[in-house]
Computed example of a mutant assay.
Amino acid sequence: MIAGDRPRIIGWTVVAMIAFAANSVLCRWALDRTAIDPAAFTGLRLAAGAVMLWLCLRAGRRTGGGVRPGPWPGSWAGAAALSAYAAAFSFAYVGLPAASGALLLFGAVQVTMIAAGLIRGERLRPLQWLGIALAAGGLVALLAPKTQIPDQGAQAPDPVAAALMLASGAAWGVYSLIGRRSRDPLATTAGNFMRSLPLAVLLLVPALLRMEIDPQGVALAVASGALASGLGYAVWYAVLPALGAAQAASVQLSVPVIAALGGTVLLGEAITWHLVVVSVAVLGGIALVIRPAARG
């Protein structure tokens, strides 16, 4: 846990949210501006994340806060969900801007977890149902064809890429549900990343055999895995105990917004009024759902 005054906690929370959003920007940057392919990017991201999380746990163990020697926490089911998320995420960003991809991902994650709660018998308040309708309407508006709009930035996302990103978000939602009762989320995440290494190797072998590893693409993939994923998760799980449930749920609404700003500044992607409106609908609707649930 990160101890300290409120400004320090807020600062580290901002760092974690920037790291989560950076995954979208780095992936889009690598696949759009370098020669690396989605499979190699995924393999390198998983491998770099596993190494970084392992180093974080070793550092914690030396200071008395790491996991004890023994079997890795986590599960093969969690590793499978993590791998499915990472692979679909990379292949989706071949055809999606950073902002639209992050919005679809975040929406799918929350829808998956809300649906799981409904299946378990949780009851929603009328305001929460309104939030679900608002978020669903925003996603439909984002995905609907907009051939009459001349602004290229307002065109509907590629349907295959959008479907892959929705699948990626669903896989991350499942991953979150699997690890929900973990007593040590960071160690569990590290264990799942370690279990994903066989898939990482399989994804990297074709690129290595073809000798088509692009150095800049490799650097971006490693940054995504080691920094945005590995260190990002480490910071988030360290600051999480200092946040209330409602705060932790609500602050993550900033991730698609940060991704959109990063895509604009670093990749020159346009932020259109259409994207702003659907983002407000999706994120505002999700906020209506998660805040009462988090307080409860």
Rank of each mutant, 00 (worst) to 15 (best):
P7A: 07
R8A: 12
I10K: 04
V15K: 00
V15S: 02
A16M: 03
C27N: 11
C27T: 15
C27W: 02
R33L: 13
R33H: 12
A39F: 14
G43S: 00
L44D: 01
A48Y: 07
A48L: 01
A48E: 06
L55W: 11
L55K: 05
G70F: 07
W72L: 15
W72Q: 05
A80Q: 04
A81F: 12
L82E: 05
S83Y: 07
A87V: 15
V94Q: 15
L96V: 06
P97C: 02
S100I: 14
L104V: 11
V109S: 05
T112Y: 06
M113V: 14
R123L: 15
I132T: 01
I132K: 00
I132V: 14
G137R: 08
G138C: 10
L139S: 06
V140T: 09
A141T: 05
A144H: 09
P150F: 02
D151Y: 01
A154Y: 00
P159D: 09
A163S: 14
A171G: 07
V174R: 02
V174T: 12
I178H: 09
G179D: 04
R181A: 14
R183M: 13
L186G: 05
A190N: 05
M194N: 08
V201S: 06
L202W: 05
L203W: 03
L208Q: 02
R210E: 11
M211T: 00
D214K: 02
V218F: 14
A223M: 07
A223P: 04
A228Y: 12
Y233K: 05
A234Q: 05
V239H: 08
L243V: 10
Q247W: 08
V251A: 13
G262M: 07
V265G: 06
L267I: 15
G268I: 09
G268K: 01
E269D: 13
W273Q: 13
V278I: 07
S279T: 15
V282T: 06
V282I: 15
V282M: 11
I286K: 04
L288D: 00
R291K: 10
P292S: 03
A293K: 12
A294E: 06
